[in-house]
Design a protein around this nucleic acid. Sequence first.
DNA 1: TATGAATGAGCATTCATTCAT
DNA 2: GATGAATGAATGCTCATTCAT
Lengths: 195, 195, 195, 195
Amino acid sequence: MARGRKVNSNGEKSMKLLREKAIEIFSEYGYFQTKISDIVKAANVTQPTFYLYFESKETLYKEIITEFKFNLEEIFDDTVNEYEHHQDSKVTIQVLLTRIFNYFALNPHLTKIGLTESDMSLNGILSQKFKNICEKFVSNFLNNEIASHIFVQSLIGSVERVSLSALLEENMKPEKLAEEIVNIYFSREEATVSI
Amino acid sequence: MARGRKVNSNGEKSMKLLREKAIEIFSEYGYFQTKISDIVKAANVTQPTFYLYFESKETLYKEIITEFKFNLEEIFDDTVNEYEHHQDSKVTIQVLLTRIFNYFALNPHLTKIGLTESDMSLNGILSQKFKNICEKFVSNFLNNEIASHIFVQSLIGSVERVSLSALLEENMKPEKLAEEIVNIYFSREEATVSI
Amino acid sequence: MARGRKVNSNGEKSMKLLREKAIEIFSEYGYFQTKISDIVKAANVTQPTFYLYFESKETLYKEIITEFKFNLEEIFDDTVNEYEHHQDSKVTIQVLLTRIFNYFALNPHLTKIGLTESDMSLNGILSQKFKNICEKFVSNFLNNEIASHIFVQSLIGSVERVSLSALLEENMKPEKLAEEIVNIYFSREEATVSI
Amino acid sequence: MARGRKVNSNGEKSMKLLREKAIEIFSEYGYFQTKISDIVKAANVTQPTFYLYFESKETLYKEIITEFKFNLEEIFDDTVNEYEHHQDSKVTIQVLLTRIFNYFALNPHLTKIGLTESDMSLNGILSQKFKNICEKFVSNFLNNEIASHIFVQSLIGSVERVSLSALLEENMKPEKLAEEIVNIYFSREEATVSI
DNA sequence: TATGAATGAGCATTCATTCAT
DNA sequence: GATGAATGAATGCTCATTCAT
């Protein structure tokens, strides 16, 4: 049987395809129920080809998680920098959430992996960053440190669940979701902002 | 070790021990990384003993998930029945959350399994029930159906994340957590209740 | 839970019941697919009780095979003795086959085990005996040793298959079967005998 | 031994070797006493290699049985077609038996499996076909339906037993066996044919 | 660059058998 | 005479990974 390089084959392409298929399948079946054989079948290559581009199943998975985390932090940092001098943190947060939800909507499989992967979760990635942003706002009406800690965790939980359900499963609009969450968390006395 | 019955052995006890250890180990390592051999080692019995009491690894896991779900629904239904005629749904919810958090605190391993098991999640178990309770309250200040849907999902996400982090990892008090969550979600105009 | 001797229990009875059920189940499922747990379940006792009466699964099976073989040889020897001085071996054989088929019909399960158990088969049990009987008759029209050897094997094969199919599955009459077989094998020039 | 492809390894060859060894071992020890580990040891490969070529132990066994059955039916049908217009069915049967015995002699292990596997047996495979061929001949001297049914079963039993004993164990000649069987069953008035 | 062929290491499950009561 | 509880010893099968081509 013929062996060796496939006609029209192209390393860059194979690698990208493998990663894409891996993300799809990981997101659907989870790490342990995803077999290398499934991934390569979906990418229409053989198992050794997988190892041409990735060190191992675990490495690829970690790369994917890292990519998710990296993108998320980038969105976060960019937004914060941009809005650094904005006086109303509520606005910042609504913009931030809108961008995050938009990113999630554009990368549903990657997001499902990132949010489901319990060892990581948004909590690990964003807890401190959210804390910083919320601080100013929160200190206005929350009387103590503990309350604000819980406030942030609660917010993160909301974002996680709403992302998995309303956004990814029910296809609601990112903007709408961001607005509603901000409404819940940051509308004690004022009306919602519109951006 | 010789074959046959151990001195002072007792089936009821062995089964309970196996289930307990299984819950601990499942909660720490997850379904796929938990081996029957780990469970029986922890319970100090051999593998066939496991199959004396449980049909399979999968069956046991499902039993455990079902137990969690059942207890949670029971807490929910009992509380709702008890507070059926209470006029302030905020109070009902605060009591409910307090009880749920207390149950979680008493069953940390089981809770970790239940909340981590993505296929189920609180969402699946409690979404509709929470929706019913929140409805009255929510209609007061949320103008539409979609907003209230997101409100409920957000609340569930908050409970999930706060349970996993503040409650189980940081050992915060159930009462405190319930109070704070209610403060976030149900204190538009009024002050928090104390129970 | 209560342990110890069952009310009305009786060793002799348990043992007999176990053997009977074992024969039934062995005959239906074969040695390897029959589990001790099946046998004791059918006899409504527990596994250790089995070992009270039988050394092992294998021992019981061998006992059963031996019983079959013994009975068969007894029928054979009795008949041969009885008809020792009969001049027509055709008659002897028809009587013999009738008795064998009758025994098979009365012990269908045991027979199925005995005839299916390839390591034994009628061949091992009866080959030599049949040879002796047939000899006189055979020498009349078979010219050589080899032919008579095949003649006997063929006869045994016929008895085996007819027993398993026509007798045990289709419930044909033992007498009829014996007559037909004799017709096939011993009716060169003469008419069939009637007994 | 290192992992990965062996020097000069060749899938086709491995698969064939595995099947051959499987047939040998199945025929010697039977289905239940044959372990995958025995088969792969004999073929000098490891267990996963077995599963590279066969779905399961059971599947392979069934494939083997099917192969036996298929070959046998082919011999049968070819012969019958070839001798369709021959007037003497005795000749047809003698040719047929000769060919069957030759096939058995060339495939002793496969034959042992096929004839021992009680759920199938020649009876299941050939009963109806033999019935058709014998019909013409049988009607000449057998007065009724039942007698002819038993005649066919008897013939099949003869073929089975003679194959297992005289042919495979005692290495008698296929031609000789066919001749003798025909002599027994089809020589009422005439002499045996020689082919 | 890519594949055909193979393997190391592990894991869930089964079953005959045996002790302690 | 009989049982509840337990175990030793397999055994089929899977999967990530790796060599030779």
